Computed example of a mutant assay.
Amino acid sequence: MCRSIKTLREPYVAEVTPADVDAAALQYVRKISGFRKPAAHNAAAFDAAVAAVAAATAALLEQLEVRGGRAAGAGR
């Protein structure tokens, strides 16, 4: 989908920071919306979507179990 979004779970990444999660969420919302930076009248919806995607991403990473390893965790 969006090649600039990197995999954020073990074994691909040893440690995931909140900045990694936020960057991935921003790239996803940019791709889906078609906006690099939304107009002022769309900024609140855009920012809310980035926050929601980041929260969902962090929750997913916290819940994933890597077989033969420890849980990935999202650094949050």
Rank of each mutant, 00 (worst) to 15 (best):
M1G: 15
M1T: 13
M1E: 10
C2E: 14
C2R: 12
C2N: 14
R3A: 15
R3S: 15
S4P: 07
S4K: 09
K6R: 11
K6H: 06
L8F: 02
R9E: 12
R9L: 13
E10N: 08
P11T: 02
P11N: 06
P11W: 09
Y12V: 11
V13Q: 06
E15T: 12
V16K: 02
T17V: 06
T17D: 05
P18A: 05
A19M: 11
D20L: 05
D20G: 03
D20W: 01
D22A: 15
D22K: 15
D22R: 15
A23S: 15
A23V: 12
A24V: 02
A24K: 01
A25L: 07
A25H: 07
Q27R: 15
V29I: 05
K31E: 12
K31Y: 08
K31L: 12
K31D: 11
S33G: 04
F35N: 10
R36P: 00
K37N: 13
H41E: 13
H41Q: 10
N42M: 11
A43L: 08
A43T: 15
A43K: 13
A44S: 04
A44W: 00
A44H: 00
A45E: 11
F46L: 02
F46C: 03
A48G: 10
A48S: 09
A49Y: 03
A49F: 01
V50E: 10
V50F: 00
A51Q: 14
A52E: 14
A52Q: 14
V53R: 12
A54F: 06
A54Q: 13
A55R: 12
A55K: 15
T57K: 09
T57N: 10
T57H: 09
A59E: 08
A59Q: 11
L60H: 07
L60F: 14
L61M: 04
Q63N: 08
Q63P: 01
E65V: 14
E65K: 04
V66R: 00
V66S: 01
V66W: 01
R67Q: 07
G69A: 14
R70W: 03
A71K: 10
A74P: 06
G75H: 01
G75N: 02
G75Q: 03
R76Y: 14
